[in-house]
Design a protein around this nucleic acid. Structure first.
Length: 576
DNA sequence: GCCGTTTTCGGCCCGACTGTTTTCAGTCG
């Protein structure tokens, strides 16, 4: 896999070109950065693309042209890149790591190198300890300590935080500001609004005529550790949970433009600006301006999209993955909504590793308005969770039946299991047990390090039994902790389609598995999906919104998600 | 360096804040 290496090299080339004093290479630098993003976020290995379709294949990628495609070719064939090596000879500095530090760009890094010989983070830490940085021109005591803090943070958190932690925090801050009586309106923006699986910082937008008072109020919130920057329109605070939060106070007339701008993502916004330019307009965070400099929008975000000739795009889609073009053609998909969800097909009870009784779960699920839930406790091979034998499943299902009778029409409980797909691709329970279930959910839990070929065969063999209705958390990844298992996604998705297996979108914030990107890939195969909570406690039943947002980020419509169906329709799907 | 229903040449998003200055460069998003 060359992608991350090449992306890093392009980024470093861009950093080093910034240091060229001879000429302004602004746009060349921009081009390298864009190419780095393209390669860095590519799902397919760039080496494969080159081998299969050559330079022409590379040049079809956005931001990759004649020169950068030649660079990629050179690196793949020789393992080196002359242009990079030459620049690196001039600047033997680890820009890739050093630019991750807040407040350090290429130019200040160069100064640190020339004056103090700093080449990498370790050198930098030494320089801070010796208090050598504060005396440099353009630096000071403040810079020295901020750089030190940034290194510490980088080393402790590793960067981005789970949406499942960041969103509730953002909502607490939003609600506190809303209840302060100081503001007319307050909304969450940024990647949190786009419901991206991890977020780098929080953006909160406010309409208020009392800017100073709002900024003071925010600085004193109990969630805030310290204030990093404070101005009349923008304040940045460090939150105790280890995230930065920007608060922006805006004029009422620019709120629509601002919420659009600060929701992003960046590529989406750049494209909108280009469309604006094409219409003789200028879009920025304050409005959509005509040639005379008059703001033509004063209201909502919808108005901006409309004036640009686009349908309004849900925030989850705003990643510049083709949504703008669809909006121009008025062909955006109608995305599945949280309110469309009628049931939850992956729930655990105290029978294995859940914390609540079946009755407690059924009660809470009914309160949430679910029409049905699937009880999916573990099978015997998952022994760390107390996985059940065939015999124990008989008792389990008898208990489910009993609660079902008790709840009458309030909610329907379905009999199922989160069953292990064993190492050889066979299933963990006897056919007789499987036949007694309403449907079967299956997952891989062991031997996660198998090679791609073996894992793919293992899973497809399980699908081919014809018993599996839902493939749970397909890639087994844990965000920031465990990489996805190796398997051929194309083959798996095709086999899922052929066998009528729905792919799960596990709503647990550290899973979100399938991910948005994998959903986008899978939907092309015509597969169906199930958005489940994988709840292990009653409060987990509320995590459904994360799964639904992930589905929206994967462009799914209601009819592609099986648990938006009535129970009757769902049973038909399970029968195939 | 990339790109093209304005263009194979001439554009490419642009404003806010900080620290260290004493009018602004660097960084960030």
């Amino acid at each position: 896999m060359y992608n991350s290496q090449i992306a890093e090299i392009f980024e470093e080339i861009a950093d080093m070109l910034e240091l060229d004093k001879e000429k302004d290479r602004k746009f060349e630098i921009l081009a390298y950065r864009k190419a780095a993003v393209t390669i860095g976020t590519l799902q397919e290995d760039v080496g494969d693309i080159y081998r299969k379709r050559g330079l022409a294949g590379l040049q079809e990628l956005p931001g990759i042209g004649k020169s950068t495609s030649e660079h990629i070719k050179e690196y793949i064939e020789t393992g080196r890149l002359k242009k990079y090596d030459e620049l690196k000879k001039k600047y033997p500095i680890d820009f890739a790591r050093l630019t991750n530090i807040q407040g350090l760009g290429a130019k200040r890094i160069l100064k640190l190198y020339k004056m103090l010989g700093v080449k990498n983070i370790d050198d930098l830490k030494r320089a801070i300890k010796a208090h050598e940085i504060r005396d440099l021109e353009g630096f000071g005591e403040k810079s020295e300590s901020e750089i030190g803090k940034s290194i510490a943070m980088l080393e402790s958190s590793g960067g981005r935080m789970l949406l499942g932690i960041a969103l509730p925090e953002a909502e607490r801050i939003r609600d506190a500001i809303r209840n302060s009586g100081l503001v007319e309106r307050v909304e969450i923006g940024g990647s949190t609004r786009r419901m991206k699986e991890t977020v780098g910082d929080l953006d909160i937008l406010v309409i208020s005529s009392k800017s100073d008072a709002v900024m003071d109020f925010v600085s004193r919130l109990s969630e805030v550790e310290r204030t990093l920057a404070k101005g009349p329109t923008k304040t940045t605070v460090r939150l105790k949970i280890g995230l930065n939060c920007d608060i922006r106070v805006l004029e009422k007339s620019s709120f629509g433009a601002a919420i659009q701008y600060f929701t992003g993502n960046k590529d989406h916004n750049v494209k909108l600006r280009q469309i604006a330019i094409g219409k003789g307009l200028k879009l920025n965070e304050y409005g959509l301006f005509d040639k005379k400099g008059t703001n033509t929008v004063t209201g909502s975000e919808e108005e901006i999209y409309r004036k640009l000739g686009l349908d309004w795009i849900e925030p989850e889609m705003r990643e510049d993955r083709g949504e703008i073009e669809l909006a121009q053609q008025h062909k955006l998909p109608r995305l599945v909504q949280l309110g469309d969800v009628r049931g939850d097909l992956h729930v655990h009870s105290r029978y294995t590793d859940g914390a609540n009784s079946i009755e407690e779960i059924a009660d809470e699920a009914a309160k949430l308005g679910r029409e049905y839930i699937g009880m999916t406790d573990h099978s015997k091979s998952e022994y760390v969770t107390g996985g059940m034998t065939d015999k124990e499943f008989e008792k389990y299902f008898a208990a489910v039946d009993k609660i079902n009778d008790k709840f009458d029409n309030r909610i329907t409980l379905l009999k199922s299991s989160e069953m292990d797909i064993l190492k050889d691709g066979s299933l963990d329970l006897q056919n007789k047990t499987l036949d007694s279930m309403d449907y079967r959910l299956a997952a891989v839990h062991t031997s996660l390090k198998m090679d791609e070929d073996e894992m793919t065969k293992r899973i497809i063999k399980a699908f081919d039994t014809g018993y599996i209705n839902i493939f749970a958390h397909p890639t087994e990844r844990i965000i920031n902790q465990r990489p996805p298992i190796k398997m051929n996604l194309d083959k798996i998705f095709e086999a899922a389609k052929d066998n009528g297996v729905a792919l799960e979108i596990d709503s647990f914030p550290n899973r979100l598995d399938l991910s948005d990107e994998n959903i986008l890939l899978a939907r092309k195969y015509g597969v169906k999906f199930a958005i489940d909570t994988d709840a292990h406690r009653t409060e987990h039943l509320k995590l459904m919104r994360y799964g639904v947002s992930t589905a929206k980020r994967g462009w799914l419509t209601k009819d592609q998600v099986i648990n938006t169906r009535s129970l009757k329709e769902l049973r038909t799907f399970f029968k195939r």
